[in-house]
Every structure is written in structure tokens, then in C-alpha cells.
Simulated scan of single mutants.
Amino acid sequence: MKLPVDPAENLAALLRCPSVTPAEGGALAALQEMLEPLGFTVERPVFSESGTPDIENLYASRAGEGPHLMFAGHTDVVPVGDESAWSHPPFAAHIANGEMYGRGAVDMKGGIACFIAALARSIADGNAPRGKVSMLITGDEEGPAINGTVKLLQWAAAKGETWDACIVGEPTNPDRLGDMIKVGRRGSLSATLTVLGRQGHAAYPHLADNPVRGLMTLVDALLSPEFDTGTERFQSTNLEVTSVDVGNAATNVIPQRATAAFNVRFNDNWSVESLQAEIHNRLDAASRRRKYRKGRKEPVEFELVWRDNPSHVFLTHDEKLIGTLARSVESVTANRPALSTSGGTSDARFIKDYCPVVEFGLVGQTMHMVDERVPLADLETLTRIYRQFIGNWFGEH
């Protein structure tokens, strides 16, 4: 039986599956075909929740006496956008000038393809891992992340699964393979701020209360002063206003209300609770300043609604996991990777509650773009890195 030792062949099989969130698109079936010849037991649970699409996921495990390594990732991809803008069809796995094109090539079917190839080569050479290996693959990472990794972890843990370490195959490298390992992530907190005013005619402002003025006061307090200047391992906390709306098409009407949505990416100076308290304190103080509400004595009336499921900041401290991966990367690429916490969130934020987790994958320059693509040489290099990491990590236990 042919083993999936070629990462390019593995990736081509996955790219030909149109698995745009929430569709499975055949991607998990393709993974099952690759994994079962390697001795994996494959299960594909479907999770549901009211108001969200059902999501099919995959959990595969290969038995072994020893420590348990998890590889985590996702086969769902973002939409292709204007397909006519692509140089090659986004689900054809076309190769041109040494690069394979396709939605998900980098984010992150490529990482999955390489990890499977690395395992297959180890097994084919008689150097199978001396422990247990599992793959936790969701179809909901690019979507609301409700029926994916969170529930898959809970489901597996309820069956008695425990893990010693995890590597997530997200595209972590900014320019070339070997640049960066993600060892943590900033937290993410979102909310909607609504200022209540009094509707009226724009020519008679004394009879109304323009909520836009109040909103300017409150937003100004959120943006300044800065929350902090960063920490040893994290960037400074940053708040971005992502939308402002008054729901008013008329130019001669003072609106009834004004809203602003914002997102904060925060470092380890803060917890979700302490950051929420700081924001509430800023808004309460600003509401009494009435900076843009001349002649008004009442405080600005506002409502603040926090979005569900904030992401908590985390930093992995497992030196064996981090050191083994860093040495494996350097051995293959001659580059010593930076240990970073930059970027957005990933499913590592859920996995960190079960075991130490790091992220390392392909170069992310074309992820989510038209003509997403990966050099075939990078697929081979990442496979070699993963193979060396697997051997070294199990060998150190």
C-alpha cells in the first residue's frame, strides 16, 4: 500500500476539495484516506449549536507506548473572492514556476500535508514515533469557531485523551521558513458601544442631543492614553475602532443613537476582567466630562455590550517543546527562529488549556489572497523540519 510520503501529492488532494467554511468539501475524507494506511484510527464527529452551521471535524490517533503528541489544524478555507482574478483555478492544485496554487495552500492545508508526509516517511523508514500521535483537525477555524476545535477537544478529553504537547501548523513565517515560531498569542476582546441621544431637527440643536458628540467623547477616552507600552514577550495593547454607525440616511436629522464597535488586542499586563474594568472606568469618567456636548449638564448616556467568547492571552513555557522545535528548524534551515507572540488569534488559544502548544508552518505571505500559493521547495523543507521534530521530541522523552 502506497504511503502518503509526498507533501505535494498530499496537498494537491486537499486543495481539490472546495472546503470553504462550513463545507467539508471532501477534505476530511481525503485526510482519512491518507491516515488509515499509517495506522491511525479516524473519527469524524459532527457538532451542532443553534444558530450556527453543523461542522464536521476529524480526530485521528495512532497508538503508541509513550508520550502523546498532537498536531492540530483546519481544512476549512476562506472564500476565493473573484475567481476570475486568479491566475489558476483556486481548487485545481495547478503548479506553475515551482509553486502550487490553491485556496488553502498556505492557510493551512499545506501544513497538514507536510506533517502527514513527515509521519509517513518516519514509518516507512522503520522509525515510527515511540509514543502516541494524534491529529485534531477542524472545519470551523475560519468561521465562528463554535462547532470546531473547542468541542472537538472536549469530545476527545471526555473519551480519556490527554496530550503532552501540541504543534499547530498555521503559517507562522513572515518571509522564509525558519523565521518564526509562535509561542503565545495576545488576547482579543470586542464590544459595541452605544450612545443614546435625543432625535431632532439639525436646525434646532438645542431641542435635541446629538449622540455623535457623546460618542466622540467616549471613543477619545478609549484611544488615549495608551493602555501600556508592551512587555518582554508581547507587543503593546492596542484598541481599534472597527465601525461607527448612526443608522441615519437624512442630512437634516440629528440621530437618536450612535454606535461604535471596537476590538482590543492585549498583552499579559491584562486579563479579560481587568481590561474590561479599565474600559468601563474610562467610559464612566469620560461620560461626565461632556467634552463635545457644550451646554449639556447630564452625563453622556451609553451602553456597552461585550462580545461573547473573548480570547485570553497566553504564553507557552514548555522549554522541551520550544527548544526541540527551534533546534529542528535550525538544523534543517540554518535559521534560528524568533520566538514570537505577534499576529492575531488561532485555535492554539483553545488548546493551551489542555497541553503546551506552539505554532509553526509555512510562509504566510499569500494566505487569504487571490493566487494563494506555496513553493514546492517549501513543502519539502517543512516536511523535513516536522520529521526531525517528531524524531527529536519523542527521542527526548
Score class of each variant (00 low, 15 high):
D140F: 08
H397W: 09
F314G: 03
S122C: 07
V195F: 09
I254D: 04
D308M: 11
A72I: 05
V219M: 11
N392F: 04
R293W: 06
F47W: 08
I137K: 00
W86C: 08
W86F: 12
A158Y: 02
A85N: 08
R185P: 00
A124V: 10
G143R: 12
H317L: 14
L31A: 01
R186E: 05
C114F: 07
S190L: 06
H88D: 08
N10H: 15
L119D: 03
L58R: 02
C355V: 00
I181E: 04
T149Y: 03
E240T: 15
T259D: 05
L193G: 01
A191S: 14
A63N: 15
K151A: 02
E303D: 10
F115H: 03
G26L: 11
D82N: 15
A277L: 15
R296M: 12
G295T: 12
H206M: 12
P7A: 05
K159I: 11
D284W: 03
H74I: 13
F389R: 02
H94V: 11
G126D: 04
G73C: 08
V46A: 12
G344M: 13
D82K: 14
A261H: 07
V133G: 02
T231I: 15
P90T: 13
A30S: 06
L215T: 07
Y354E: 10
V195E: 03
V42T: 10
L15F: 07
G81T: 04
N97Q: 15
G184S: 13
A221Y: 12
H206V: 11
D378V: 02
D164S: 06
E141T: 09
E240C: 14
M34N: 04
D220I: 09
A29L: 14
T333A: 07
M100G: 06
L304N: 04
A165R: 00
D268I: 09
V272G: 07
P174S: 14
K159Y: 11
R185F: 02
T162S: 15
P45C: 12
N269T: 11
P337L: 01
D378R: 01
G391M: 07
P79G: 12
A286P: 03
R198E: 13
M216T: 08
S19Y: 14
I279F: 07
